[in-house]
């Protein structure tokens, strides 16, 4: 139940923000989710729809997900390539000395609130 755990923390972070900023209603939440973060967005949205009802400040908020493409950097040839297509081996030079530089994120980008 990985997605559920993340939703619990997301809701808590948002409630804390709402309290601090004196926000009564959050109407939209935009997340940036990395392509290889391991989060299944369909399941994630289902968890959100179920869970938001427990929080008055969130109960009508729509969840919007923006996908961040996964990019890997090769330290042998110093080029980058799309991770999902080529995995761990660099398509430019065949090296395995590669590092994921983006695509593992789960960030709250912004929220839309009632004035």
């Amino acid at each position: 139940m990985h997605e559920m755990g993340i939703i619990l923390h997301l809701a808590k972070s948002l409630e804390e923000t709402a309290e601090k900023e004196k926000i009564k209603k959050i109407t939209r939440v935009t997340l940036e989710v990395g392509e290889v973060s391991g989060i299944m967005t369909d399941y994630f949205t289902d968890c959100w729809d179920y869970f938001k009802k427990r929080h008055p400040v969130l109960d009508t908020a729509a969840l919007e997900i923006e996908t961040i493409p996964a990019v890997t950097y090769c330290s042998s040839c110093e080029k980058t390539y799309p991770t999902v297509q080529y995995g761990r081996t660099c398509p430019h030079c065949g090296s395995g000395e590669t590092w994921l530089i983006q695509g593992n994120e789960c960030i709250i980008k912004e929220i839309e609130v009632e004035d």
Binding site: L10, T17, I23, I108
Partner: peptide
């Protein structure tokens, strides 16, 4: 409506 930019990780409250 007002947009607030947060840019914090989902697990920020846990951290």
């Amino acid at each position: 409506m007002k947009i607030i930019e947060l840019k914090e990780t989902v697990t920020a409250s846990n951290d």
